[in-house]
Amino acid sequence: MTASIQETLVSDSQAPWRRWARRHGWTFGVWILLLVLIAYYATLIPRFGAFQVASIVNNGTPLVFLAVGQAIIVIAGGIDLGVGGMLVLSSVTAARLMEGQPLLVALLIAVGILLAAAAINAVVAWIINVSKVPDIVITLGSLYFFQGLALAILPNPAGGANEWFRWLFTGSKTGIGSNPWPAIVMITITVTAIGWWLGKTKRGLSLYAVGSDKTAAYLSGLNAARVKILSYAIGGAFAALAGLANTAIAGRGNANTVGGNLTLNSVAAIVLGGVALTGGIGSVIAVIPAGLILFFLSPILTAMGVDPNSAQVVQGVLIVLVMAVTGIIEWRRRLRS
């Protein structure tokens, strides 16, 4: 997970399967963990069928999108505490505008929200670039700004969404059903597309380059400031997509949702998904199962007879443990060199 470039070079001379394991082992492991957890969950509850699968996939969708957005920003060397606020903002805007609209108008509104979110987050990245204030401080400000704006747009839980728009994210016109396929297709298309873009195109790889070493990327001719803006814009659009999914699931918007907790979940998901918070390392494909696992913790704990509020405790402890272990590895490596 914290393989340095040196190790990657060494691994090229090793057996192909070891190279594969080194490169994709973490991704593979997280997917296996998700399947094991689902299998375990199936033994815990009396009836496990399409409804349960749909419930996990559908309700986990917002966190998956949010975490993918965070992953893109973190891979490019930033961190956006504002994604949770962006989710809430997008969700309430959608709920307010979409109420009573036909599907076509709803889709146009959705596209408009995605573009607006990308533009707003691009401005946030621009401020980080120009002010040279750490990402964390500026986005702490933007988190509260978005949350306040959301509250101004929709002071009380209200609004609605077109029923076919709800079907698009949940496979059901009422938001509750046994059809996980629309959500699965939605996640697969968007995340595979962005994963392909990140790993295979020149522009996408520039995010990894800037994230792993800003100075080296700059010296080799990349415009680091522009790459940061690009990563924040895409990340913001994914956060907004998470907000749209949220509106589709709930059928309305709630500005009292605490964006800070959502941000924390997104950070937890990318840490579990093997994205290094120092930037430059990670895969968005591994973030899908990580996001689903984090959402999945609370139903599992409930099924085990443990207070579902412990899920939050488990998440927090998990982040700290992963960070502590990687922190110590990094520190020892630095001491040795």
């Binding site: 937890a268 412990s310 927090g316 402890v317 700290v320 960070m323």
Partner: peptide, 18 residues
């Protein structure tokens, strides 16, 4: 353990809330 202060305290906030 050298966890970043923001991550550490954000996680602590979640842990305490839970």
């Amino acid at each position: 353990f050298r966890v970043h202060p923001i991550i550490m305290t954000l996680a602590m906030s979640g842990i305490l809330l839970g």
